[in-house]
Design a protein around this nucleic acid. Structure first.
Length: 723
DNA sequence: CCTGGGCGCTTG
DNA sequence: AAGCGCCCAGGA
């Protein structure tokens, strides 16, 4: 009789002891009965002497002979559980592909092969008049054929007919494992000669193979970061090792993938959020078997097992989409650091606009710092300027002076990009007579007016209603919109520049499969001259014909309650600037603002992101902010706001501490969402361990607070925003 | 007396 | 989280 600890997918911060006759390895799944239910758990370790022998149940079934979580991934799960203070069973549940959570087999599904039965000559003779059946049987004479391949040539009716006659039979067997299969046809296509900075970066990364070595690859847009990745990857692949590449949610385009695939002529594993469970499992299996040399994926791809781990790359490491915003709130970039450390392999964090966390690690020499400062092909930097809009007439949010600059660029046949951070027509609808504002009841925030759908839409909860004709409060017919969104600018510019083809790119306009990609292709084929859009335009796509970028409103971010708002604005502006222009057509960028003298804007515009970020780091240090201080947030929400607040008040008394500063309970930046009031309690300390220790000791008491079960609460370690 | 919903307890 | 027993209200 053996005893094992099993992690069970329930929100309890403990494992459960089960008995078994055969000892499963840690990382193997087991079927267990848990209370009145049957669940799939994962063995985390052996136990020699259980504490409550009378309570212990036996495992119903061991699902895996070989662990679904190898040593490294299991270790990572433990780290996640301890660092983010999240129940181990739920951690393991999030790490595993959906089908494996449900108990599906972890080994690849058997392949069906067709064999010719005995008496081949005789059978062939009998098929003299059935030409297709004859051909089909003949195809199987020398060797069995995989069903998929056979069906490419012959319809199933032919195959069925032969089977009925007993001339052929099928056999199922597991597909052969082909570890390092890319080495058979791995071939490097023509590659450009790296410039001096690229060459240094490549050789530095390559020299640190086979050991943990984190690097920040800080490369201005157009400096050829991807080429550095490619040449470093080449070396890892040639050694027979695998590379895991993380990309932001929106960056996983067919172009990105084909750039890697065509360079090496190999199969690439792709993992994105829209992949179905079956395909996801298949990539997981092929990566685990060591078949795939390169795996590219979004956030959760960091959990992909690798038989021959060689390197991890996190592209656009500053991107927000690496942070999971519910459940296990991990940061994939931070986890990549841990994973590379445990795998003992190099890690490359690439970006033109490093997060202050990563930049700090590079400046303090915890990470190697590789810099690419030159734009390839001698392309000149987009010239950035601030446009003072004070006292200027604004039409649909654009100053007259700005419109005339736009006219110049358009008349020269160039493309112009207008960035607005708001989709819809206008961010509010109000009555000009009585001042009544149309707010979503559940969120108590103004509805966004969507003219194309003729609806008011709440961007916090997704709720919608028709646009009223007259004021529901005073009955007057004087409803007006306030503020400017993409739709309104589209309308206004269409009237201002009739005959200029324009396209709007926001999450409303690009809904649907491949719509974004088609639109981007059309833009670069110069089917449009005016591009109006949101965030989406700032991510990864290059627009060589754009010579003017207009950013409509910087002011919000300069005075935001979120201390990261200015960092995010600087990243956005820099990324946008990098999208435009090329060697023969240098670009210019204008930032509309009511605060032209604001030091942040001035610094960004005159000295660039690299300088801005270093200044911002100094400021964070002086004001005791991350990354020099660690933070955690406990959020609480309930339809009864007082209850949500009271819970955090009680938590606060449980958390009194010398070394950890408590701030709150405060309303979240989005105070109400979907009918629930939201509050937060912020923990801050110079030592991350102090926060971790404090929370770990207090969690049992927090969980058992009577109010805890009456509110929805969650814990967020290293929060990236306070919404 | 029966039904149903809310609540709180337990999970090895 | 989720299944279950327990308790109490409400209808006949």
């Amino acid at each position: 009789m053996h005893f094992v600890e099993v992690a069970v997918p329930v929100p309890l911060r403990q494992t459960f002891t089960y008995s078994c006759d055969i000892l499963p390895e840690p990382g193997c799944r087991v079927s267990i009965s848990f209370g009145p239910r049957n669940l799939v758990g994962v063995v985390t370790g052996e136990l020699t002497a259980p504490e409550n022998p009378d309570k212990i149940k036996a495992i119903d079934k061991i699902i895996d002979d070989t662990p679904v979580l190898d040593r490294v991934l299991l270790k990572l799960c433990h780290w996640l559980s301890q660092y983010y203070l999240h129940p181990i069973g739920e951690v393991i549940h999030t790490v595993l592909p959906v089908l494996l959570r449900k108990g599906e087999s972890a080994s690849p599904v058997d392949e069906v092969w067709w064999h010719a039965a005995d008496n081949i000559d005789e059978n062939l003779a009998a098929l003299k008049r059935a030409k297709r059946q004859y051909a089909c049987l003949e195809a199987l004479v020398d060797e069995p054929v995989r069903e998929g391949d056979l069906k490419n040539t012959f319809p199933s009716t032919i195959i069925n007919a032969l089977e009925e006659k007993g001339f052929i039979r099928q056999e199922s067997k597991p597909p052969p494992l082909r570890p390092k299969m890319w080495l058979d046809y791995f071939d490097v296509a023509k590659k450009p000669l790296p410039d001096k900075e690229q060459a240094v970066a490549i050789s530095t990364i390559v020299q640190s193979r086979s050991r943990f070595a984190p690097y920040l690859l800080e490369g201005v847009t157009g400096s050829g970061k991807t080429e550095v990745y490619l040449q470093a990857i080449e070396d890892v692949l040639a050694e027979g090792r695998q590379v895991l590449i993380l990309v932001p949610e929106i960056g996983l385009t067919p172009q990105t993938v084909s750039r890697f695939a065509s360079r090496f002529g190999i199969d690439i594993g792709i993992l994105h959020s829209q992949l179905n469970d079956k395909d996801r499992l298949s990539v997981w299996q092929r990566a685990r078997a060591g078949e795939l040399g390169v795996i590219i994926g979004t956030r959760s791809a960091i959990f992909t097992p690798m038989k021959f781990p060689g390197m991890i790359i996190v592209d656009e490491e500053h991107d927000d989409s690496y942070k999971q915003q519910d459940g296990l709130r991990y940061h994939a970039r931070d986890l990549a650091v841990m994973r590379a450390h445990t795998e003992n392999i190099p890690l490359v964090l690439g970006t033109a606009t490093p997060s202050l966390e990563t930049l700090n690690n590079a400046l303090t020499k915890r990470y190697g710092h590789l810099q690419l400062t030159k734009r390839a092909g001698g392309a000149s930097k987009t010239h950035q300027q601030v446009l003072d809009v004070r006292d200027q007439r604004l039409q649909f949010g654009i100053a007259d002076g700005m419109l005339s600059i736009m006219r110049q660029h358009l008349s020269m046949g160039n493309q112009v990009l207008v960035f607005v951070n708001r989709r819809g027509y206008a961010p509010a609808l109000i009555c000009h007579h009585c001042g009544h504002s149309y707010d979503c009841r559940r969120c108590e925030r103004p509805y966004t007016v969507h003219r194309t759908q003729q609806r008011l839409q709440c961007h916090h909860c997704g709720g919608a209603r028709p646009i009223p004709r007259q004021c529901e409060h005073c009955g007057e017919n004087k409803l007006i919109t306030a503020g400017v969104g993409t739709e309104q600018i589209e309308d206004g510019l269409a009237k201002m520049f009739p005959g200029v083809k324009q396209i709007r790119i926001d999450s409303d306009s690009v809904r649907g499969k491949d719509k974004l990609q088609r639109s981007l292709d059309d833009i670069n084929a110069q089917k449009y001259q005016l591009l109006i859009g949101t965030q989406i335009l700032s991510k990864g796509h290059h627009f060589p014909h754009v010579t003017l970028v207009v950013v409509l409103d910087c002011d919000g971010a300069l005075f935001s309650a979120d201390f990261r708002a200015s960092e995010k604005l600087a990243q956005l502006v820099t990324q946008l600037a990098g999208r435009a222009g090329r060697a023969s057509k240098p670009g210019e960028m204008w930032l509309q603002t009511h605060n032209p003298g604001h030091p942040l804007l001035q610094d960004l515009v005159h000295n660039g992101y690299a300088h801005f970020a270093r200044q911002a780091l100094d400021e964070r240090k002086l004001s005791w902010m991350p990354p020099f201080q660690s933070q955690a947030v406990i959020r609480s929400e309930a339809t009864n706001g007082e209850l949500a607040w009271e819970f955090l008040e009680q938590v606060r008394t449980l958390l009194q501490s010398e070394v950890v500063r408590l701030n709150g309970p405060l309303p979240c930046l989005i105070e109400k969402r979907q009918g629930r009031y939201r509050f937060m309690l912020v923990l801050q300390s110079a030592q991350r361990k102090a926060i971790n220790d404090l929370l770990r000791r207090a969690l049992p008491n927090i969980t058992s607070l009577p109010t805890a079960s009456k509110v929805r609460w969650s814990l967020d370690v290293d929060p990236s925003d306070f919404s």
